[in-house]
Design a protein around this nucleic acid. Sequence first.
RNA 1: GUCCCCUUCGUCUAGAGGCCUAGGACACCGGGUUUUCAUCCCGGCGACAGGGGUUCGACUCCCCUAGGGGACGCCA
Length: 499
Amino acid sequence: MIVRTRAAPSPTGDPHIGTAYVALLNQVFARRHGGQFILRIEDTDVVRSTRASERMIIDALGWLGLDWDEGPDVGGAHGPYRQSERKDIYQAHARVLLDAGHAFYCFCSPERLDAVRAEQTARGENPRYDGHCRALDPDVARRRASGGEAHVIRMKVPAEGVCAFHDHLRGTIEIPFAQIDMQVLIKGDGFPTYHMAVVVDDHLMKITHILRGEEWINSVPKHVLLYQYFGWQPPVFCHLPLLRNPDRSKLSKRRNPTSINYYRRAGYLPQAVINYLGRMGWSMPDDREIFGRDEMIAAFDLDRISLGAPIFDLAKLNWLNGQYIRKLSPEEFMDEVQDWAFNRDRLASLVPLVQERTERFIDLVPQVDYLLGERRALAATDFTHPELSEAEAKKILQYVLWTFDAMATWERDLIYGAVQTIAKAMGHKIRDFLFPLFIAVSGRAVSLPLFDSMHLLGADLTRMRLRDALEVLGGVSKKQLKQLEKEFKALVDTPEGAE
RNA sequence: GUCCCCUUCGUCUAGAGGCCUAGGACACCGGGUUUUCAUCCCGGCGACAGGGGUUCGACUCCCCUAGGGGACGCCA
């Protein structure tokens, strides 16, 4: 048997460091056994998926030195590798399940489902589909569906019993079927849900081992059931520990830089990032702390994965990165610095900002210090302003931070628009409103244009500086946070000009 | 709330019944080298969540409790 693994990112935003982590382990495991590693794009959420995000993911993984034997960019014998291009395949497979009586048409409206769930929750029950359409006559249902009536296709799930399956690292796991919902397989737009697509694709693409985050453990019964319904052999399941924030919650951009782009922009070397990821939940059989991907391949053993939840902590990554940087020859060092800060693209975005503000080249570096380097350390007094109290500055920073948290695309005009909207809603002059943001981002009340700066820095770095500024101002207590959140929601929900 | 997973220094981890007086790394603290700083070297601080079993012997196996996390979407 040839080992085949895959990474299956969803192109709905920035390339996530967790994607790189899972991809690394999948690739290393496959290579260790002389197998193949596949990249598959899970873009069945048509609304949120973008080609731009897909390109960023492929680019970011490439920067890290990860590569794949088959994928949307390199092709392969089991394509297409973009799920949005496999719609017909899922439809055909859904029909098989329908015909065999393992699935059924469902005509329930989202409104009805919401109501049902609300009732169930109120009664203290598990929110679940109530089986309303399951009893429909299959022929009648099929005619309604082909007649154009809005519908989804759901899978049938046994009412009782337990689903027992094997996890390579955890042994046997048993989950009662009572916990499993009659999952939608084909959505109203004709695209499959994750659960449908993943089973069909993993089978068709001959995936032998599924290495993925442990957030998926609870949906394995759905997958096992589908494998049974299709009469297929399920692959080996191996659920990896989830990368965590310092507070042990699942790693999230709200608390941490999660974009691979951040690490690239902040001046980490890809080898260091890979090395660090390789030490999350895994260790070399000897005492080696510093090792490359090839060394990892040579020594890799799935059983050496530990299950504790590793905190993604920048301190050790920084040390590791320093190790790699010092090992560079002066020639290599020059190349790296040049590529990092002064490559043509980067320069091209900087020049329009600085050229008109420059009389002598000696003026150049002080202008861009906060863009190329760490912003200076702040003090609370930096936020003193004639028109703006400290409390208002905090509020502004927090609101803007929340707004940025919710942004999927990081473009100058979008940033500008978003900030402008809040400023208006809060009733501040844009000039005053921007002051704390200038301080937070550049460390100065006067700097290069703010939104260009933010765009250049990237979302993660910008958010990081806003968070830091908030801390400098004494932080926000849990209680304050709740109050602010309420006010913020009210502010955002207010329709334009409704005041 | 229901179900599932997890639990060794602050952090990443080694440890697969006696090799453990629990090892290493980061961080932190102290000292040395260095015109400063950093690097580098030396030293220090520091953990088996708790309680029951099993065993001649438990960090290692089992059970319970506690704590943490995850899932409960026509998102993945």
